[in-house]
Design a protein around this nucleic acid. Structure first.
Length: 468
DNA sequence: GGAACTCGCCAC
DNA sequence: AAACGTGGCGAGTTCC
């Protein structure tokens, strides 16, 4: 009786059309180079065997084996944790979900034991072999992989993918990226076209809270929110993105402060994060520490500005956080409070796309779910329209993957210009017409790889504005 | 011998 | 007062 939601019909239609379009994506599939995949698995196995043999010859391993008294499994984290933390009595700051000392990468590095680095190397190679290459080979049929895309599993009404999961193939780590994506190809004579929504989650959150400052940032291409925050956080007059160090400061502000704050993190975590980005220690700072700015190290710069230690940086960031929510984006902050109140009163929240989230949610959930969900729905709606054009016009190009705010097209090169125009028309005009609540510009970035080259290949070109 | 759990790690 | 969200999956381990 409380389930009165005027947008339910539209929400249903999106899932209905979405599942049909995604079925066509599954059916199309991605081509795999089977010979490469099998050879690379063998190579990785040889590398892993050699590294394990070397590891077993170290003093560290011998002591571990000796004190344990029985056979050790190198891949067992509980065994490793027992030896490191219970037997030798080492300590780490990092604690797992269940309260145990952690053996993750950060913990092991912080212990400063050289032998553990080869253990981390083994871990990484095994991950690539067992999670990705193995799954590709297992799931392929006639040298095509057909991953599933689900619309019924995720709390926020995003999608998920499995068998194999095509939404978490390595990208940031260059080596892992190369090994995994080198296995995946477009159809013969085709190339990959990658289409990504530009800052979609920030845009969608603004459709909810309508903060005037954020609206100005999004509507004015010359403005730069992350550069402004970098200036404030690092006490710098001007950010010159062409300088490597300034570019790093901007990235740090974006990924170490702005986004975490949007998602509900707070200044203490951000301070730690930011120090990682600029390589400053969590103690009193000395001259010549951290990344190099033009002319001097960042510690010299910050000390001159009166921020002389990690703890005073934390205090500095506390003030910036207050300013961020009280002065810079007050309407955004008020929206967060409003929605928390609504959830406590009614027990649910409705997305702009008509979906309803109910059940137990934290304060952060209440403001993150609607953004995450509706942002994905922009991609899904776009995918449906693009797929429809491809089908109705009998195009040879096919959508073959989808990752929350992006889609991958297996492109017939002769259809490039047409498809770029179609996509831009749908994203910039049709989408905001379809959903009147979209009050910010909608845009996509496009990247294209060379014909007959794998997904690992460097992008041959960014599709330029004037090309539209 | 399989289900269910923990941990770590990949993506957005 | 609390302290960033969503998934999938492999290996090791424990439970029944």
């Amino acid at each position: 009786m409380y389930d009165i939601n005027p947008h339910r019909e539209n929400a249903y239609k999106l899932l209905h059309d979405g599942i049909l379009a995604l079925t066509r994506v599954e059916q199309a599939g991605i081509r795999i180079d089977l010979e490469y995949t099998r050879n690379m698995k063998l190579r990785l196995t040889r590398m892993i065997d050699r590294l394990e043999k070397e590891f077993k010859n170290t003093k560290f391993y011998r002591r571990w084996e000796h004190t344990t008294g029985k056979k050790i499994n190198i891949g067992s984290n509980p065994q490793l944790a027992h030896y490191l933390y219970d037997v030798i009595g080492l300590k780490t700051e990092r604690i797992t979900e269940t309260g145990q000392y952690s053996t993750d990468e950060e913990s092991l590095i912080s212990l400063n034991i050289p032998e553990l680095n080869s253990l981390l190397r083994i871990r990484k190679l095994k991950k690539v072999r067992d999670t990705y290459l193995d799954a590709f080979e297992r799931e392929q049929v006639d040298e095509y992989i057909h991953p599933f895309f689900n619309l019924h599993l995720v709390t926020t009404y995003r999608s998920s993918s499995d068998s194999p999961n095509f939404q978490n193939i390595p990208k940031r780590d260059e080596e892992a990226m190369q090994i995994c994506r080198r296995a995946l190809y477009p159809r013969p004579g085709h190339q990959f076209l990658e289409v990504d929504f530009k800052g979609i989650e920030v845009g969608i959150s603004t459709c909810y809270h309508k903060d005037p400052t954020m609206l100005r940032y999004l509507r004015n291409p010359a403005s730069d929110m992350h550069a402004d925050m970098a200036r404030q956080i690092f006490v710098i007059d001007k950010i010159d993105k062409s300088l490597t160090s300034h570019y790093t400061l901007r990235q740090a502000a974006k990924n170490g402060f702005v986004f975490p704050e949007f998602y509900g993190d707070y200044y203490k975590n951000c301070a730690m994060n930011l120090c990682g980005w600029v390589k400053l220690p969590q103690e009193r700072w000395r001259k010549g520490q951290g990344i190099e700015l033009p002319g001097r190290a960042i510690s010299d710069h910050l000390i001159e500005k009166g921020i002389e230690s990690y703890s005073s940086f934390e205090e500095h960031l506390k003030k910036i956080e207050n300013d961020f929510w009280e002065k810079r984006f007050p309407e955004y902050a008020k929206w967060k409070e409003r929605w928390w109140k609504i959830y406590r009163r009614y027990g649910y929240i409705d997305l702009l796309t008509g979906f309803r989230c109910s059940g137990i949610m934290s304060k952060n959930d209440v403001t993150n779910y609607p953004v995450q969900g509706a942002a994905f729905h922009c991609l899904l709606w776009t995918l449906i329209q693009v797929d429809k054009v491809m089908k109705e016009e009998g195009l040879d190009s096919r959508i073959v993957n989808q990752i929350h705010d992006s889609m991958l097209i297996d492109l017939n090169p002769t259809e490039l210009n047409h498809i770029i125009r179609v996509i831009n028309g749908i994203v910039r005009e049709d989408l905001p017409t379809h959903w009147k609540w979209i009050i910010v510009p909608m845009q996509v970035d496009m990247e294209i790889s060379p014909v007959d080259e794998s997904w690992a290949e460097k992008k041959e070109m960014k599709v330029k504005e004037e090309f539209v």
